[in-house]
Structures are given as C-alpha cells and as structure tokens.
C-alpha cells in the first residue's frame, strides 16, 4: 500500500531522515518546516497520515492537531517529540494524536506505528466483525477465537493482544506498541513482561502440529503472518 504522508518537522536532519526512509518504502512525502504551513497542508486533507513534531516554530504540534480535529479532519496523526514523559504522552493523545513516538526513535518503529494508525483509521477496519489470518479466526462481536474448528479460550487481555496483532497482520508490532495500545501504558516496565504474554498466547493458538503464526522479529517485536 503506497501512502501519501505529510511530515511537519522543523529540524532538517530528522525531516530528511524520515523523508528518505519513507520514500525508500515507496511512499509519497510532503515536508513542512513551520507550524502554520503544516496546518494549511494538513487542512487540505489529501494525506493518508501526518507525522508532526511537537515543538515547531510559530505554532506547536498540539495546536495543529487540536485545530485539525476541531475542523473534523480525522487524518491519522503521530506525534514525534523529545518530551517523552507519561504526562507529555497523555497530552499528545488527548490533543487528538493517534500515537506518540519519543525521539530518538528507530525508523522501523516509526514505520510500524504509522502503518498501524493508518490501518486502524481505515473505514473497512472499523466495520470488520471478524479478523482472519490463515485458519485463525477472531469473532470481534462475540469476543471468541477459533483455530480451524477448535475454539481457543482466551483471557480478555490475550484477546486484545491477538486482535492488535491481527489488525496489523503482516506488519511488525513492537513491544512498546503493545504496551501502549493493549495495556494503555505510556511507560515501559521490564522489557520481557510482554514476551511472556506472547509465548502464552502462542501456546494457546498453536496446537501441536499446527504452523506457528506469531513470529519474533529480532530487535523489533512480533508479526503475525499468513502462509501465503
């Protein structure tokens, strides 16, 4: 899926780094260096997603977002900021951002989050009542999971993890993304807490002889992927 992405970032090095990375992945990129310019581009509404630096000259990122949301522009947006404390993140999300990424960040993390927020805002995603990867099926209305004909007994949290992975099927999901979206935690506990939840989930969905569906991406996170 090729996307058109608006980058509002005044710092030349970061802007170049993001622009180059996104173009390599085949996306179209517009870069704005000031807040007002960014807002006018964003109001145009031609973009699939917006990446906004929080601190910008003349108008900060939160103001741009609030203005945009007040104008009922629901373009998925992600805030980039060096302000990474819990309350900063909460402020960002309250201003209407779909995600919040703290500088310095790895490009793969930005890309993973970007794809996730675009996917989530996809109108087709909202109407979905069932998610499917191979023979793994998630009934979102009845909150039930099936692998083939076998029903899997999942705890609510496990269901949420699986739903998040499956909504982002084929794309990497980082541990931080899971903590942010499944647990709603804007801080990072001991790194391997998430890993144990994943291995439990794996034991439940992959019965003996079945193809393992959740793969571990070294240094990145996890990905659920169909065989085809």
């Amino acid at each position: 899926m090729t996307m058109r992405i608006l980058v509002i970032e005044d710092e030349a090095r970061t802007a170049d780094f993001i622009e180059r990375g996104l173009k390599e992945k085949g996306h179209a990129v517009d870069v704005c260096r000031t807040g007002p310019e960014g807002l006018s581009f964003a109001l145009g509404g031609e973009h699939d997603a917006i990446i906004i630096d929080r601190m910008l000259p003349q108008m900060d990122g939160l103001t741009i977002l609030k203005t945009l949301r007040a104008e009922d522009r629901q373009t998925p947006a992600i805030i980039l900021s060096a302000l990474g404390q819990i309350d900063h993140r909460v402020e960002g999300l309250k201003a209407g951002s779909d995600d919040y990424l703290v500088k310095p960040f790895a490009f793969s993390e930005l890309l993973a989050r970007l794809e996730a927020i675009v996917r989530r805002r996809d109108p087709r995603a909202a109407e979905q009542t069932e998610l499917k990867v191979d023979d793994l099926r998630l009934d979102l209305e009845r909150r039930r999971a099936f692998r083939g004909a076998r029903e899997i007994d999942l705890l609510p949290r496990e269901f949420a993890i699986l739903e998040y992975l499956m909504r982002n099927a084929g794309r990497p999901v980082t541990r931080t993304m899971l903590l942010n979206h499944v647990w709603d935690y804007q801080f990072e506990p001991q790194a391997n807490v998430v890993d144990v939840h994943i291995s439990r989930l794996r034991r439940k969905i992959d019965a003996a002889g079945e193809r393992p569906l959740i793969e571990t991406l070294r240094g990145e996170g996890y990905r659920i992927r169909s065989a085809t």
Partner: peptide, 19 residues
C-alpha cells in the same frame, strides 16, 4: 492521581521484587 504514574509506581515495585 494520575493513572499512568500510579501504574508505573506499582509496576516498579513488582519489577523490583521480581529482580
């Protein structure tokens, strides 16, 4: 209070106990 900070507080205590 602040739900996130409180969660971080408790999570730190459990982390510490586990470590």
């Amino acid at each position: 209070g602040h739900a996130q900070f409180l969660a971080q507080l408790v999570s730190n205590l459990v982390d510490n106990a586990l470590k």
